[in-house]
Write a protein that binds this DNA or RNA. Sequence first.
DNA 1: GTTCTAGAAC
DNA 2: GTTCTAGAAC
Length: 187
Amino acid sequence: MAKNSGHWSQGLLASMNDAAAVVDADDRVVIIKDKYPKALFHFLVLPRQKIPNLKSVTKNDLSLLEHIQKKGEEIAHRANSELKFRFGYHAVPSMSHLHMHVISQDFNSPCLKTKKHWNSFTTEYFVDSKDVIRQIKVKGQFSTDTQRMNELLKSDLRCHVCGKCFATIPSLKAHIVMHDVTKLKDS
DNA sequence: GTTCTAGAAC
DNA sequence: GTTCTAGAAC
């Protein structure tokens, strides 16, 4: 076993080979359930090709990125066609191996516990797949302001539906369950 | 990425 | 006294 292969940041590689985690796969991608889902439905779409992160993506990978998004939209619709979903990448991911999040916008999950969790899915730290693809098309590569992104994670807790601010995670969570996320579809 | 927990915040 | 957050993890 190579050094570091068992490190927590390599966990997605193990999950890709875990039959219990995999929900779908084809010749180019594997789709797994997030081990600690931050919403009712939370999947990760990973390319079989070993791409560490967005920084190593080039124009040669555009069709793969589009395939990843298409497969994500499919699994979301199959999981629940009523809920609003978002499809995108963390600007500064913790886990190695490129992965696109497919996450329903209820954020109703006991695994969502911290300000970092919340802000990583509701601020610009979450980059829509469409915007990643657009940037690769225009600039040929993905770039991000890491320092600014890490500051965004410390932003005040703000409801992603109505914009109201909250002092604590529990008060925010009590608030967001009152929004009917099925009504947000296509908004 | 999570777990654990000290001490801040209430 | 309890809730909640934030930083270390060798």
